[in-house]
Computed example of a mutant assay.
Amino acid sequence: MTVCVPQGAGQRGKMLLTGGRGMVGRNIREHPLAQEWHILVPTSDELDLTDAAATADYMRDEQPDIVVHSAGQVGGIQANMADPVAFLDRNVAIGRNVIMGAHGAGVTRLINLASTCIYPREAPNPLREDMILTGPLEPTNEGYALAKIVALRLCQYIRQQTPTLMYKTLVPCNLYGRHDKFGAHNSHMLPAVIAKIHAAREAGDSTVEIWGDGSARREFMYAGDLAAAVLWAAINIEAIPDVMNIGVGKDYTINEYYQAVADVIGWTGAFTHDLSKPVGMQRKLCDISRQTALGWAPQIDLRDGMALTYQFFLERQSS
Rank of each mutant, 00 (worst) to 15 (best):
P191A: 06
V85F: 11
W232A: 02
K148E: 06
L110P: 00
G280T: 07
M1D: 10
E315L: 13
K14L: 14
A262E: 04
V264G: 00
R29N: 04
G249D: 12
R96W: 11
K250V: 11
A9M: 07
A199Q: 12
V98W: 03
D89R: 13
G212Q: 00
R96I: 15
D180T: 08
W37Y: 12
K284F: 08
G25C: 08
R60T: 13
V248S: 09
D242E: 14
P126L: 04
K168W: 04
V208S: 07
Q299C: 09
R201N: 07
V264C: 04
Q73E: 12
D130F: 12
Q311V: 03
D57N: 11
E36A: 13
A216E: 08
A223C: 15
I149D: 01
N255T: 14
Q63C: 12
I240D: 04
A270N: 15
A192P: 00
P120W: 05
Y257F: 15
I28T: 06
M166T: 06
V98P: 01
H179R: 09
L113F: 10
E46L: 08
R283Q: 14
L314N: 11
N236T: 12
D213Q: 09
M221Q: 07
V150M: 13
A199G: 12
L152R: 08
T292N: 11
Y119H: 13
H38K: 13
C4P: 01
P241E: 10
A270C: 11
L170I: 07
H103K: 10
M281Q: 13
A147F: 04
L40C: 10
L226M: 12
A145Q: 00
D213M: 07
A203E: 11
L190F: 05
I118H: 00
W211S: 12
G20T: 08
H273P: 05
T268W: 07
D287Q: 05
Q282G: 14
G20K: 03
R26Q: 15
Q161L: 13
T108K: 15
V279A: 06
L154E: 13
K196Y: 02
N112T: 11
R303N: 13
K277M: 15
T162L: 06
Y157N: 08
L113P: 05
V98R: 00
S44D: 09
E238W: 03
V67E: 03
G214I: 09
N255M: 07
T207E: 14
P172S: 06
M131I: 00
L170H: 00
C173P: 00
I28E: 01
E256T: 07
Q282P: 07
D301Y: 06
